[in-house]
């Protein structure tokens, strides 16, 4: 973990971006009748190239959706926008983090979008418990890494 990078509080950009994320979730529900959970969409897409239990079998739109995710920053930059990003540089920690995020979202059947945005919008009690659990785990982890271990 590196030490804190200061970031500016951006309520309007964040609210606007959030509305776009919600709009996408509504598009996926209205057009495909599915939950726009990125972990689930990724599982469904992966199911096309390897046997994967529990992966959705409708792969066409899932692959296209992931391409759309990839295209977003490219299009923003091509249109003259800037994309600010600071990714942690401890590659070992990032490998562990990736493994945990993948394993956890597969086991828990959802991530920030599936349980967070879509699950809460459906008023799912199961999703509410999942969100409370992963938020708490995230808060505790950052507290331990930054304030107890002091940035390893």
């Amino acid at each position: 973990m590196e030490m804190d990078t200061q970031t500016a509080f951006t309520p309007w950009a964040s609210l606007g971006g959030g509305v776009l994320i919600g709009l996408s979730a509504v598009m996926v529900m209205g057009i495909f009748g599915r939950i726009a959970g990125i972990a689930g969409i990724t599982m469904g897409a992966l199911g096309g190239i390897m046997p994967l239990r529990g992966a959705g079998s409708d792969r066409d739109w899932r692959w296209a959706f992931l391409l759309g995710l990839l295209a977003a920053p490219v299009i923003l930059i091509a249109a003259g926008g800037t994309v600010t990003q600071t990714v942690p540089q401890n590659l070992f920690a990032m490998a562990i983090a990736g493994l945990m995020v993948g394993t956890g979202t597969a086991l828990g059947s959802g991530c920030t979008s599936g349980h967070g945005v879509c699950g809460l919008a459906r008023l799912s009690g199961r999703s509410l418990v999942a969100v409370a659990t992963f938020m708490t785990a995230g808060f505790v982890t950052v507290f331990l890494l930054r304030h107890v271990l002091g940035g390893v």
Binding site: M1, I38, A39, T42, V87, P88, A93, M94, I96, A97, G98, L99, M100, V101, G102, T103, G104, T105, A106, L107, G108, S109, C111, T112, S113, H115, V129, A130, V131, T133, F134, M135, T136, A137, G138, F139, V140, T141, V142, L145
Partner: peptide, 16 residues
């Protein structure tokens, strides 16, 4: 799963 995911999210700052 949610707890594992939260810990990984707290380490890397990325969700899927």
């Amino acid at each position: 799963g949610a707890a594992l995911f939260g810990i990984g999210w707290g380490i890397g700052g990325f969700c899927p």
